[in-house]
């Protein structure tokens, strides 16, 4: 029996197939040299369109190919609809071995990995246009997100107990997530703060970080004296701190490193007598003239 859904998809497929033949035929392109003595014969005129261009020719290949492709795609979906008997309740119940078919199961856990997957794709998109490093970062993020998403999808259906499912997921993923997250946070803090260290004068760096340490210490004392600290307040405080670290990291990176006199002192490799090889912080060793390289370093420091 051809079901309703299958009728639509088969009907669409059939219509597109007829359209393909009509279009392939009427858009011209028949080579009468292949059929001497049959000039104007309708059969030979249509032969190309009827044989997918194997014998004879079709007119507009693009339109013909697209119509045929759409017909094939539609017919394929139609064949699934008929094979599943339109996924009606009774056939599904038979497949499930139940009196009525089970409904779709709601996903109750909240996780952001679908959103992060979309974000990763956006990073890849940006990278395709701007930099391959973005592509790499996006692909890494996408792989992580896909893995997390898969584990969530499995855990959501592991048992009928949502709490146990969440625990199962945590048991599998926490040993991976926590060290990885810790490493990312540590790298983020080290990278951001090191940019600031490198950007400001040495003495200022010392005083600044003494001050920051004092502020952190005072905040911690203040918080410990409070009888109760709301979770949201702590979260907000940490988020602010993270944003502050990110901002100083960006500002430091944009300003570039200060000039390092002790490291930029020129020295000649003894005994070579050749061109001076210069080592400046953050620069690849070159054999260019010392004054030129030094000048570049100063400019960057500004």
């Amino acid at each position: 029996m051809i079901t309703t859904g299958a009728k639509f998809y088969f009907g669409l497929g059939f219509l597109l197939l007829v359209a393909a033949v009509l279009y392939g035929w009427t858009s011209g392109g028949v080579d009468w040299g292949l059929f001497p003595g049959h000039l104007g014969d309708l059969y030979f005129e249509m032969l190309g369109a009827l044989t997918l261009g194997y014998k004879g020719a079709v007119g507009d290949h693009l339109g013909y190919g697209l119509l045929l492709g759409a017909a094939a795609s539609s017919t394929t979906v139609g064949s699934f609809m008929v094979a599943f008997r339109d996924a009606e309740d009774k056939p599904l119940a038979e497949v499930a071995g139940l009196r009525t078919a089970p409904p779709l199961q709601r996903v109750v856990s909240s996780n952001v990995w679908a959103t992060i997957s979309a974000f990763a794709v956006a990073v890849i998109a940006l990278g395709v246009a701007i930099s391959r490093w973005f592509v790499l970062a996006g692909v890494v993020l996408l792989v992580i997100a896909a893995l997390e998403w898969t584990i969530y999808a499995w855990a959501d259906r592991a048992t009928g107990d949502p709490d146990l499912n969440a625990n199962l997921r945590d048991k599998i993923m926490n040993p991976i997530e926590i060290p990885l997250f810790g490493a990312i946070v540590a790298a983020f803090i080290a990278l951001s703060i090191s940019r600031l260290f490198l950007a400001i004068p040495r003495l200022s760096a010392t005083w600044l970080f003494l001050g920051v340490a004092a502020v952190i210490f005072a905040t911690a004392i203040g918080l410990s004296l409070l009888p109760k600290v709301p979770q949201a307040a702590m979260g907000g405080l940490l988020a602010l701190a993270a944003i502050a670290v990110l901002v100083i990291g960006i500002v430091g990176a944009v300003n570039g490193a200060r000039e390092f006199h002790h490291e930029s002192e020129e020295f000649t490799v003894e005994g070579t007598g050749g061109p001076t090889e210069l080592y400046v912080y953050g620069q690849v060793p070159t054999t260019t003239g010392a004054s030129e390289q030094h000048g570049h370093s100063e400019e960057k420091g500004k």
Binding site: P103, R106, A114, S117, A118, F119
Partner: peptide, 21 residues
């Protein structure tokens, strides 16, 4: 008469992908 959509997380991903795109 369904309690949810098919592939609910994919539906959510589609929204965020569309918005970012």
């Amino acid at each position: 008469g369904s309690p949810t959509i098919a592939f609910p997380r994919a539906a959510a991903a589609s929204f965020w992908g569309w918005l970012l795109g």
